[in-house]
Design a protein around this nucleic acid. Sequence first.
RNA 1: GCGGGCGUAGCCAAGUGGUUAAGGCAGCGGAUUGUGAUUCCGCCAUUCGGGGGUUCAAGUCCCCUCGCUCGCCCCA
Length: 424
Amino acid sequence: MVAKLQCMRGMVDLLPGQTPLWQRVEATAHEHFRRAVVQEIRTPLLEATELFARGIGEATDVVGKEMYTFTDRGDRSCTLRPEGTASVVRAVIQHGLLSQGPQRLWYGGPMFRYERPQAGRQRQFHQIGLELLGFADARSDVEAIAIAWDLLADLGVQGLALELNTLGSGADRARYREQLVAFLQQHREQLDPDSQDRLERNPLRILDSKNATTQELLAGAPTLADALAPESRERFELVKAGLAALEIPFTLNPRLVRGLDYYSHTAFEITSSQLGAQATVCGGGRYDGLVEQLGGDPTPAIGWALGMERLVLLLAQGEANPAPAPDLYLVNRGEAAEAAASVLARQLRRSGLSVELDASGSAFGKQFKRANRSGATWAAVLGEGELERGVVLLQPLRGQAAEEMAFPLADLAGLLERLKPVAF
RNA sequence: GCGGGCGUAGCCAAGUGGUUAAGGCAGCGGAUUGUGAUUCCGCCAUUCGGGGGUUCAAGUCCCCUCGCUCGCCCCA
């Protein structure tokens, strides 16, 4: 036997039992975006590596070690997108969309990161994301968060928590970064190895460390909140007040530091305790500097990304969807009758019914067995006898009384009238 | 990249060195050549993720490797 082929590590197939749930999530998201007047944008999966290097930040793990990067035949360095924001911003700049005013955009689709897979984390994963570009007001932060919150609530996800923090302006962060590094340098030996490493590369991320002794040490460290300029502080108060006015509950998490470089001011995560180690369902924040950093005019913006796999995990509860039952199962046998059955199946399908046509040519008993198991509401029988009489036999499969009715093949309208109310 | 657990059929699963790898579900064929329940009968792993080794003998022990899984890191 030839060695079995299987999909690559960290890549998964979504089988027919799972796709209905994905479709429901996507349809719900689309509807929420429609109501919020947010338009879809689709960008290529493949981008020049430089886009992510410049946009996300060289110091981040995503860029440093998780990207699917390769050289194409034209010797260009290409990367499979590890997230959506950089591409959206690139497209917006490239096509001058902001000259037409602020943009309210959403995107969806696969993202790629070369990581070790675990619960709620794959190498190819899917995100749905929102980007509001050209909006500076704190109310846009509130609106972005509210859209995510309401979408998740509408889907029926239980046990979610919104965590909120502010990273301040770029100037605030630079100031705080110095204070933090100065403090931590004095206690360098007490830091865990990872945090020591981050002291040079990305010191703010140390705040997020799960190491217990590092966290004890941080208790005495200067806080980001204290380093905020008054305007930044006021801005954050407005965001909190806006969320409170919408009755969206949140908890403040001063250690919430987004991993990607481009965030500023509002940062948030929506998490679930039921997800294991990868608890974040939705993460986002404000990124006022990114558009300019990628070559556009300075533009304030806020956005978030929602992890589809994690969301589906929360909704699935291990339940697989059964195969959908057809409205009608068409039993047929005999050369001429089989040909007529194909025609009939097509006519019925054109009328909107779901019809399973038995193409096996097996004995009637066998076909009926399959008809019954298909879960169909009706069995229709078209054999040589029926064809000669120009009728099709109709039999309800749900009830025990197997009342058979003959309908003229020519009178398709009458047949449909009989079928539709029950077939639904 | 690092650490723990696990790989027997499409799925669940017995088997802890001794002759032919239980069982269940699903599937397929038949009993029933024009009618769906149930039942009954038959079929469905020359092989235990893959490779090497130890042994008279390996699904069972050892090594390597691949994959899955949970966690670290990181993030959605």
